[in-house]
Amino acid sequence: MKDMRAGAHLDLREVSFRFGGGVTALERVSLHVSEGEFVVLLGPSGCGKTTLLRLMAGLVTPESGRIMVAGRPPRPGRDAAMVFQSFRLLPWKTALQNITFAIPHVPDREARARRYLELVGLSRFAQSYPAALSGGMKQRLALARALAAEPSILLMDEPFASLDAQARELMQQELVRLLQDRPATVVFVTHSVDEALLLADRIVLLSPRPGRVAEEIPVSFARHGDPRGHPEFLRLRQHLWARLRKMVLTDPQSDFFGRGRG
């Protein structure tokens, strides 16, 4: 492929965001993501992870603070491509058309779409409608659609959360493999501690109401074999779980508020 950049950098400074109803989703969030880095945003639900991605994608603008993507304010469809939890495929378009829809300005878009279908193992289903695909296949299609834009930044919002355990693990491996061939900067949202530890170069732990950065944890063993038995993996896992548990138990809006015994 032509000029392969290893991604673009992304910079948030003191970013705050409030919804119309007065809900402060994010308060003074600062975050830097380097070129080619794989950052996982981890936090309980409602801590502003999705909002943060939408800000990075340029879908919404911050109330205050500054966001720079590759040195300029973000604009939808320019530097970043997004993968959503609920796939968001157009049901009236075939697999192939779902991809070409996302890359209207590419001259050889059909050939490119076919290439990415092949890459995620969906060549046989080019002419199938999403209704005919399984959950895992739908998410692979959604991933192919994002990759086909050849973005320098990939924003992924709990992309594997609705898959079953096996499909989820296979997709994680698939993502790692795809990124080896086509490096990009990735911001990946999850509320699964294991998924965060398996994929991240760095984990950014967010705390809820209002969303803030609670802790940043570099992860050294990302993507080298299966690290799940590694003592460091187990230590971090325990640490993250403890922090998440505390956040959930002390969040008045959580179902588990006040249920901790110690």
């Binding site: 939408r54 994608a57 879908l59 604009r75 939808p76 469809g77 320019r78 970043a80 491509a81 997004m82 959503f84 609920s86 968001r88 157009l90 829809f101 996302a102 890359i103 834009a149």
Partner: peptide, 10 residues
């Protein structure tokens, strides 16, 4: 959700 997806592609 589909509208937002479309917006995200520019």
């Amino acid at each position: 959700e589909l509208v937002e997806m479309a917006r995200s592609t520019g």
